[in-house]
Computed example of a mutant assay.
Amino acid sequence: MVKAAGVDDQPLEKDTVLCVKTSEGRIGRLKVTSLEDWGPKVKFEAVIWNLASDSAATAG
Rank of each mutant, 00 (worst) to 15 (best):
3 K>Q: 10
4 A>Y: 05
5 A>N: 12
6 G>I: 06
6 G>P: 05
6 G>A: 03
7 V>I: 07
7 V>P: 01
8 D>I: 03
9 D>A: 15
10 Q>I: 13
11 P>E: 12
12 L>I: 08
12 L>N: 13
13 E>T: 13
13 E>M: 06
14 K>Q: 07
15 D>S: 03
15 D>E: 04
16 T>W: 00
18 L>C: 02
18 L>Y: 01
18 L>E: 01
19 C>G: 11
19 C>T: 12
20 V>H: 06
20 V>I: 15
22 T>Q: 00
22 T>Y: 02
22 T>C: 02
22 T>W: 00
23 S>I: 11
23 S>V: 07
25 G>M: 00
26 R>Y: 04
27 I>A: 09
27 I>R: 12
28 G>T: 06
28 G>S: 01
30 L>D: 03
30 L>Y: 03
32 V>T: 00
33 T>E: 13
34 S>D: 06
35 L>K: 03
36 E>Q: 06
37 D>R: 02
37 D>G: 05
39 G>W: 04
41 K>R: 07
42 V>A: 09
43 K>M: 12
43 K>A: 14
45 E>F: 08
45 E>Q: 14
46 A>E: 14
46 A>S: 13
46 A>K: 13
47 V>L: 15
47 V>F: 12
49 W>I: 08
49 W>L: 15
49 W>Q: 14
49 W>E: 14
50 N>L: 15
51 L>Q: 11
51 L>D: 06
52 A>R: 11
53 S>W: 10
53 S>N: 09
53 S>M: 09
54 D>G: 04
55 S>I: 15
55 S>T: 10
55 S>A: 14
57 A>D: 06
57 A>I: 02
60 G>T: 07
